[in-house]
Design a protein around this nucleic acid. Structure first.
Lengths: 229, 229
DNA sequence: CTACTTGGGATTGTATGCAATACGTTCCCG
DNA sequence: CGGGAACGTATTGCATACAATCCCAAGTAG
């Protein structure tokens, strides 16, 4: 959902925003490339206004940099920040997992079922199944996208928009890093997701926090060892 | 700079963005309040377009929530997220301080002085002096603003736009929390800033990280004890 | 030859008008 | 009297037009 390749019938602004981000993450738009609103407007057959809003949103996400009256350029891949980004992500996702477990306990027991919560929980179940199917069908290339959706889903379950927004921002950068690398830890990492989900469903707060922390930490060391060698 | 009260000769978009954020942080716009572009446009005597962009930026910052074709409302104060936000901030600022110290070592020794770096370093010195003066003159109310500028300045010194953007997002929320509370730990907390600065200037990487971590941690426990206790 | 000014062209920022969508209200039918 | 569907209003989303700003290059004075 967040960084899907293309949703033809979405709002124009969202469409071009996703398209540009995709082009940046996968290298079609290299770092330092100049971007002009007019060019994108003609390219996508829309006016400058939605393009402009998409660019500003991407600036907030950290993919492009704009200077007033001067134009926008593509930011550099934050490869030097990888270690620190993972460290922050560790603290952040430990918090989302802990809070998700806390809320889960309330959802399963008490008498005020939250429709949104159950919807997200169902989506997560579907994501896990899709991932397993992707592995079974020899399509591990689908895992990165599913991976991000899983982690954002957990953040949704935490019920904290603040934390979700922060994770969304970090996840974008991490997706960028992984796209430059070719993801590999895939299968083993994916299997750990069910452990996280189980801890949350059980309402086991400390275990949820700990398991998620270990999961993210492994992802971090995996990436760093692959990249820095 | 980031959340200044009002800069009359700034761009309209930036001006209304700061004004609205100020109104939200200091309670003029209460949580749940409906916001319409047209009303703000008349209020500030400008067109709907810059207002619209300001609102979208504030949505990315987590202060307002917008639904397509339905309008925007002021978000709730993230008081339940305080603990987690401080935890993430601890990891984040430990990273910025560490990287700032690492870069400082390079700046003082080697032969490639970075103009931007020195400019930020000078601004930080001015901020520290302003804070001392504010305390001396019995104006501790100026400290929260200076406090944020100091921490964002350290992030600038780290040379990482990713980390700076993340801190900016978190700092906005924390400023919001502190505004609902009335800041108190002020004076002692401010004094710790010179310790952080000294560690960075010395290029003492582990000490910079550790001192900043303790500083933020004290701020966290101080807030939580005041609020929950 | 250098430094400063002064144009032109390109690009973003803002204003206005129109189209698309959501929400509340009312009216009709059961 | 209750429920659901059509409708009107309010509000956002997009398109077009214009103004403000910046960058760069050419030209001129010293």
């Amino acid at each position: 959902m967040p960084h899907s390749p293309a949703n033809p019938d979405a709002a124009p602004k969202q469409r071009v925003q996703d398209a540009i981000r995709h082009d940046i993450i996968f290298g079609t738009l290299p770092a330092g490339a100049r971007i002009t609103e007019a060019a994108l407007a003609t390219k996508y057959g829309i006016s400058r206004v939605p393009v402009r809003e998409a660019l500003h949103a991407l600036e907030a996400e950290g993919f492009v940099e704009s200077k007033p009256y001067a134009g926008s350029t593509v930011c550099a891949i934050p490869v030097d920040d990888a270690d620190d980004l993972f460290a922050v992500r560790e603290a952040l996702e430990a918090a989302t997992a802990r809070r998700a477990a806390k809320r889960a306990a309330g959802q399963f027991s008490a008498g005020a079922p939250d429709g949104q919560w159950w919807k997200t929980r169902k989506e997560l179940a579907a994501i896990l199944d899709e991932g397993d199917a992707a592995i079974g069908n020899g399509r591990p290339d689908l895992l990165p996208e599913l991976n991000i959706r899983f982690h954002l889903g957990i953040a949704e379950l935490s019920g904290s928009p603040s934390l979700t927004a922060l994770l969304r921002q970090i996840a974008g950068k991490i997706e960028w890093l992984y796209a430059s690398d070719l993801n590999s830890r895939g299968k083993q990492s994916w299997g750990e997701h069910r452990t996280v989900m189980a801890a949350i469903d059980a309402g086991n707060v400390p275990e949820a926090e700990q398991v998620m922390g270990v999961h993210v930490h492994r992802s971090r060391t995996g990436y760093l060892s692959r990249f820095a060698g």
